[in-house]
């Protein structure tokens, strides 16, 4: 498979080939192959403990895979030298499960740090950018607040503003709706969709929230801890309509069906 073209023939932003991942001698998943196309909202799904977050760690460069390759725009990430890796990683924006905002800094300082680190922009320009990013996630006026002074939903949005600081090509989300009320979760989903539509950003989301999966996902992989492989991939809505796999059906219907038409 051409690393710049996915299996669908579209332009592949991320291509994963023959990937084994785990910790030390413990293999969590093996032989993973999939491609994330430009502009996709790609869902990594599966039950708790199946390795979703570990796969995310491999994708964002925090954990080296046991075997296999990850290509970004055709560049083999784990084979590149440290400088190249750094350049590739600079195109990532990551929203961590706990938002991971730096608690000793205000929201403005949190968003400004990546800009100060990686650009030579003037202070006033950075201030304008910070205000814009916070306004994009609906947090205008909260610049001088500390993370401990705002709600969990707002912290997620502030985390997203920080993730978008450097206008990333790919946004990664680890359990974006975890700990959010349904309305905040829905608003965050809408925000992800709007950002993808307007910026054309590729989005990779690790989640097991079914409502989010169906609301925003247009491509996915399903990780199965028993076989340690990907047992389904594609549009989640299509998987729900067509999948014959009992595990996938059980997951996508909250355990109501184990395969098409069969009640568990």
């Amino acid at each position: 498979m051409d690393e710049k073209r996915g299996s669908t023939g579209l332009e592949a932003k991320i291509t994963v080939r023959d990937l084994d991942m785990g910790y030390g001698s413990f293999v969590l998943m093996r032989n993973m192959n999939f491609a994330v196309n430009k502009g996709d909202i790609f869902i990594i799904m599966g039950g708790s403990g199946c390795g979703k977050s570990t796969l995310l760690k491999v994708l964002i460069g925090l954990l080296e895979p046991l075997r296999g390759q990850v290509f970004y725009d055709g560049a083999n990430f784990w084979e590149e030298d440290a400088r190249q890796k750094d350049l590739i990683m600079r195109k990532f924006g990551i929203l961590y499960q706990s938002s991971a905002l730096w608690s000793s800094m205000t929201l403005a300082e949190n968003v400004a740090l990546p800009l100060e680190q990686y650009t030579n922009l003037s202070k006033s320009r950075i201030r304008e950018l910070v205000s814009l990013k916070l306004a994009l996630v609906g947090l205008a006026g909260f610049e001088e607040f500390y993370p401990s002074e705002i709600s969990g939903g707002m912290r997620k949005r502030a985390g997203l503003a920080r993730a978008m600081a450097l206008d990333p090509d790919i946004l990664f989300f680890d359990e974006p709706s975890a700990g959010l009320d349904p309305v905040s979760a829905r608003l965050l989903d809408d925000l992800i969709l709007e950002l993808r539509d307007s910026l054309g950003t590729t989005v990779v989301v690790v989640t097991h929230e079914l409502q989010s999966i169906f609301a925003i996902g247009n491509n996915s992989v399903f990780l199965d801890p028993d076989t340690k492989t990907i047992i389904a991939s594609g549009d989640p809505k299509r998987l729900l309509a067509e999948s014959k796999d009992p595990k996938v059906m059980s997951f996508l219907t909250r355990g109501e069906k184990t395969s098409q038409g069969v009640e568990s």
Binding site: L132, A135, L136, G138, L191, E194, L195, S198
Partner: peptide, 14 residues
Amino acid sequence: GVRKLLDLASPKRQ
């Protein structure tokens, strides 16, 4: 895309 983003950042959404 720009119009959508401007709408997101507009004061009425804050």
